[in-house]
Amino acid sequence: MNFSPFFLSAELGLITTIVLFVMVIPMVYGIHFFSGKWAPIWKALASLPLILPPTVLGYYLLIALRPDGWVAQLTGLELAFSFEGLVVGSALYSLPFMLTPILTAIENLPDSYEEAAFTLGKNRWQTYTRVLLPCVKPSLLAASVLTFAHTIGEFGVILMIGGNIPDETRVASIAIYHEVEALHYATADRYALILLGFSLVVLLGVYGKRLN
Protein backbone atom coordinates (compact mmCIF):
# COMPACT_ATOMS: atom_id res chain seq x y z
CA MET A 1 0.00 0.00 0.00
CA ASN A 2 1.54 3.21 -1.21
CA PHE A 3 0.29 6.43 0.37
CA SER A 4 1.97 8.92 -1.92
CA PRO A 5 -1.18 9.33 -4.10
CA PHE A 6 -3.06 10.67 -1.07
CA PHE A 7 -0.36 13.19 -0.23
CA LEU A 8 -0.25 14.27 -3.86
CA SER A 9 -4.04 14.68 -3.89
CA ALA A 10 -4.06 16.63 -0.62
CA GLU A 11 -1.24 18.82 -1.85
CA LEU A 12 -2.90 19.41 -5.21
CA GLY A 13 -6.23 20.22 -3.54
CA LEU A 14 -4.64 22.62 -1.09
CA ILE A 15 -2.46 24.44 -3.62
CA THR A 16 -5.26 24.68 -6.18
CA THR A 17 -7.65 26.08 -3.56
CA ILE A 18 -5.13 28.70 -2.42
CA VAL A 19 -4.17 29.68 -5.98
CA LEU A 20 -7.81 29.96 -7.05
CA PHE A 21 -8.80 31.92 -3.95
CA VAL A 22 -6.05 34.47 -4.58
CA MET A 23 -7.03 34.69 -8.27
CA VAL A 24 -10.78 34.85 -7.80
CA ILE A 25 -10.92 37.65 -5.19
CA PRO A 26 -9.69 40.30 -7.71
CA MET A 27 -11.75 38.68 -10.49
CA VAL A 28 -14.98 39.06 -8.50
CA TYR A 29 -13.94 42.64 -7.70
CA GLY A 30 -13.50 43.37 -11.39
CA ILE A 31 -16.73 41.72 -12.46
CA HIS A 32 -18.78 43.32 -9.67
CA PHE A 33 -17.54 46.89 -9.96
CA PHE A 34 -16.20 47.35 -13.48
CA SER A 35 -17.84 45.00 -15.96
CA GLY A 36 -21.23 46.77 -16.10
CA LYS A 37 -23.33 45.37 -18.91
CA TRP A 38 -20.47 42.99 -19.85
CA ALA A 39 -20.88 41.04 -16.61
CA PRO A 40 -22.92 38.21 -18.21
CA ILE A 41 -20.10 37.56 -20.68
CA TRP A 42 -17.51 37.18 -17.91
CA LYS A 43 -19.82 34.95 -15.92
CA ALA A 44 -20.54 32.78 -18.94
CA LEU A 45 -16.83 32.50 -19.77
CA ALA A 46 -16.00 31.51 -16.19
CA SER A 47 -18.57 28.71 -16.35
CA LEU A 48 -17.24 27.21 -19.57
CA PRO A 49 -14.91 24.68 -17.85
CA LEU A 50 -18.11 22.95 -16.69
CA ILE A 51 -19.26 22.34 -20.24
CA LEU A 52 -16.48 20.26 -21.76
CA PRO A 53 -16.13 16.67 -20.58
CA PRO A 54 -13.02 16.53 -18.35
CA THR A 55 -11.05 14.28 -20.70
CA VAL A 56 -11.78 16.62 -23.60
CA LEU A 57 -10.75 19.65 -21.54
CA GLY A 58 -7.64 17.68 -20.60
CA TYR A 59 -6.91 16.98 -24.25
CA TYR A 60 -6.98 20.68 -25.15
CA LEU A 61 -4.91 21.53 -22.08
CA LEU A 62 -2.40 18.92 -23.18
CA ILE A 63 -2.21 20.55 -26.60
CA ALA A 64 -1.65 23.94 -24.94
CA LEU A 65 0.84 22.77 -22.31
CA ARG A 66 2.97 20.35 -24.30
CA PRO A 67 6.66 21.14 -24.90
CA ASP A 68 6.04 22.70 -28.33
CA GLY A 69 2.63 24.13 -27.36
CA TRP A 70 1.84 27.82 -27.12
CA VAL A 71 2.17 28.04 -23.32
CA ALA A 72 5.71 26.67 -23.51
CA GLN A 73 6.57 29.00 -26.38
CA LEU A 74 5.13 32.00 -24.54
CA THR A 75 6.53 31.33 -21.08
CA GLY A 76 9.27 28.74 -21.54
CA LEU A 77 7.59 26.49 -18.97
CA GLU A 78 7.10 22.80 -19.72
CA LEU A 79 3.97 22.02 -17.74
CA ALA A 80 2.60 18.83 -19.31
CA PHE A 81 3.23 15.68 -17.25
CA SER A 82 4.38 17.63 -14.19
CA PHE A 83 2.78 18.46 -10.85
CA GLU A 84 2.82 22.17 -11.76
CA GLY A 85 0.85 21.30 -14.89
CA LEU A 86 -1.75 19.58 -12.72
CA VAL A 87 -2.13 22.78 -10.66
CA VAL A 88 -2.73 24.81 -13.83
CA GLY A 89 -5.24 22.26 -15.14
CA SER A 90 -7.05 21.97 -11.80
CA ALA A 91 -7.24 25.74 -11.40
CA LEU A 92 -8.98 26.05 -14.76
CA TYR A 93 -11.18 23.02 -14.13
CA SER A 94 -12.32 24.17 -10.67
CA LEU A 95 -12.60 27.91 -11.47
CA PRO A 96 -16.44 27.95 -11.58
CA PHE A 97 -16.60 26.28 -8.17
CA MET A 98 -14.61 29.09 -6.57
CA LEU A 99 -15.95 32.03 -8.57
CA THR A 100 -19.69 31.40 -8.75
CA PRO A 101 -20.54 31.09 -5.02
CA ILE A 102 -18.49 34.18 -4.10
CA LEU A 103 -19.81 36.32 -6.95
CA THR A 104 -23.41 35.32 -6.32
CA ALA A 105 -23.09 36.08 -2.61
CA ILE A 106 -21.57 39.53 -3.28
CA GLU A 107 -24.30 40.36 -5.80
CA ASN A 108 -27.02 39.36 -3.37
CA LEU A 109 -25.88 41.80 -0.68
CA PRO A 110 -28.14 44.85 -0.39
CA ASP A 111 -26.88 47.86 -2.37
CA SER A 112 -27.17 49.93 0.80
CA TYR A 113 -23.95 48.34 2.19
CA GLU A 114 -21.91 49.73 -0.71
CA GLU A 115 -23.73 53.05 -0.70
CA ALA A 116 -23.12 53.51 3.01
CA ALA A 117 -19.41 52.74 2.60
CA PHE A 118 -19.07 55.15 -0.33
CA THR A 119 -20.90 57.87 1.63
CA LEU A 120 -18.40 57.40 4.44
CA GLY A 121 -15.57 58.08 2.00
CA LYS A 122 -14.33 54.57 1.30
CA ASN A 123 -13.18 53.73 -2.20
CA ARG A 124 -14.25 50.63 -4.12
CA TRP A 125 -11.35 48.35 -3.06
CA GLN A 126 -11.78 49.36 0.61
CA THR A 127 -15.52 48.75 0.35
CA TYR A 128 -14.90 45.39 -1.26
CA THR A 129 -12.30 44.10 1.20
CA ARG A 130 -13.61 45.69 4.41
CA VAL A 131 -17.37 45.55 3.92
CA LEU A 132 -18.52 43.18 1.21
CA LEU A 133 -16.10 40.25 1.64
CA PRO A 134 -16.51 40.05 5.44
CA CYS A 135 -20.28 39.87 4.89
CA VAL A 136 -19.96 36.77 2.70
CA LYS A 137 -17.54 34.73 4.82
CA PRO A 138 -19.71 31.59 4.74
CA SER A 139 -19.69 31.74 0.94
CA LEU A 140 -15.91 32.15 0.87
CA LEU A 141 -15.67 29.00 2.97
CA ALA A 142 -18.19 27.11 0.88
CA ALA A 143 -16.40 28.08 -2.34
CA SER A 144 -13.06 26.92 -0.94
CA VAL A 145 -14.50 23.61 0.24
CA LEU A 146 -16.18 23.01 -3.12
CA THR A 147 -12.93 23.77 -4.93
CA PHE A 148 -10.92 21.49 -2.67
CA ALA A 149 -13.40 18.62 -2.97
CA HIS A 150 -13.75 19.06 -6.72
CA THR A 151 -9.96 18.97 -7.14
CA ILE A 152 -9.59 15.87 -4.97
CA GLY A 153 -12.20 14.10 -7.09
CA GLU A 154 -10.77 15.31 -10.37
CA PHE A 155 -9.94 12.55 -12.82
CA GLY A 156 -10.19 13.06 -16.56
CA VAL A 157 -8.17 16.26 -16.81
CA ILE A 158 -5.39 14.86 -14.62
CA LEU A 159 -5.23 11.54 -16.43
CA MET A 160 -4.80 13.41 -19.70
CA ILE A 161 -2.25 16.09 -18.75
CA GLY A 162 -0.55 14.17 -15.93
CA GLY A 163 -0.03 10.74 -17.40
CA ASN A 164 -0.36 8.57 -14.26
CA ILE A 165 3.31 8.93 -13.28
CA PRO A 166 4.00 7.50 -9.77
CA ASP A 167 4.98 10.06 -7.08
CA GLU A 168 4.50 12.89 -9.54
CA THR A 169 1.07 12.93 -11.13
CA ARG A 170 -0.55 9.73 -9.83
CA VAL A 171 -3.01 11.34 -7.44
CA ALA A 172 -5.53 9.30 -5.44
CA SER A 173 -8.30 9.24 -8.06
CA ILE A 174 -5.81 8.11 -10.73
CA ALA A 175 -4.36 5.52 -8.34
CA ILE A 176 -7.81 3.98 -7.86
CA TYR A 177 -8.29 3.80 -11.62
CA HIS A 178 -4.80 2.34 -11.95
CA GLU A 179 -5.54 -0.45 -9.47
CA VAL A 180 -8.78 -1.28 -11.30
CA GLU A 181 -6.88 -1.41 -14.60
CA ALA A 182 -4.38 -3.74 -12.90
CA LEU A 183 -7.28 -5.94 -11.71
CA HIS A 184 -6.27 -5.25 -8.08
CA TYR A 185 -9.85 -4.71 -7.02
CA ALA A 186 -9.18 -5.13 -3.30
CA THR A 187 -6.48 -2.42 -3.35
CA ALA A 188 -8.78 -0.16 -5.38
CA ASP A 189 -11.50 -0.61 -2.75
CA ARG A 190 -9.07 0.29 0.04
CA TYR A 191 -7.85 3.38 -1.83
CA ALA A 192 -11.43 4.52 -2.47
CA LEU A 193 -12.35 4.00 1.17
CA ILE A 194 -9.34 5.97 2.40
CA LEU A 195 -10.05 8.77 -0.08
CA LEU A 196 -13.67 9.01 1.07
CA GLY A 197 -12.70 8.81 4.76
CA PHE A 198 -10.00 11.43 4.40
CA SER A 199 -12.30 13.78 2.48
CA LEU A 200 -15.07 13.31 5.02
CA VAL A 201 -12.71 14.23 7.86
CA VAL A 202 -11.50 17.32 6.03
CA LEU A 203 -15.03 18.43 5.14
CA LEU A 204 -16.28 17.81 8.69
CA GLY A 205 -13.31 19.75 10.02
CA VAL A 206 -14.02 22.72 7.79
CA TYR A 207 -17.80 22.75 8.17
CA GLY A 208 -17.58 22.03 11.89
CA LYS A 209 -15.25 24.93 12.55
CA ARG A 210 -17.35 27.86 13.69
CA LEU A 211 -16.68 31.15 12.02
CA ASN A 212 -16.10 34.02 14.40
Binding site: A80, F81, M160, G163, N164, I165, E181
Partner: peptide
Protein backbone atom coordinates in the same frame (compact mmCIF):
# COMPACT_ATOMS: atom_id res chain seq x y z
CA UNK B 1 10.16 0.22 -13.69
CA UNK B 2 6.92 2.25 -13.65
CA UNK B 3 4.01 0.71 -15.51
CA UNK B 4 1.51 3.24 -16.81
CA UNK B 5 -1.64 1.59 -18.17
CA UNK B 6 -4.26 3.48 -20.17
CA UNK B 7 -6.13 3.26 -23.43
CA UNK B 8 -3.66 3.08 -26.31
CA UNK B 9 -5.26 6.14 -27.91
CA UNK B 10 -4.74 8.24 -24.77
CA UNK B 11 -1.14 7.04 -24.41
CA UNK B 12 -0.42 7.83 -28.07
CA UNK B 13 -1.79 11.35 -27.70
CA UNK B 14 0.37 11.83 -24.61
CA UNK B 15 3.49 10.50 -26.34
CA UNK B 16 2.87 12.85 -29.27
CA UNK B 17 2.64 15.64 -26.68
CA UNK B 18 6.01 14.76 -25.18
CA UNK B 19 5.07 12.39 -22.36
CA UNK B 20 8.21 11.07 -20.61
CA UNK B 21 7.65 7.40 -21.46
Amino acid sequence: VDLIPAASGVLSTQILSGAPY
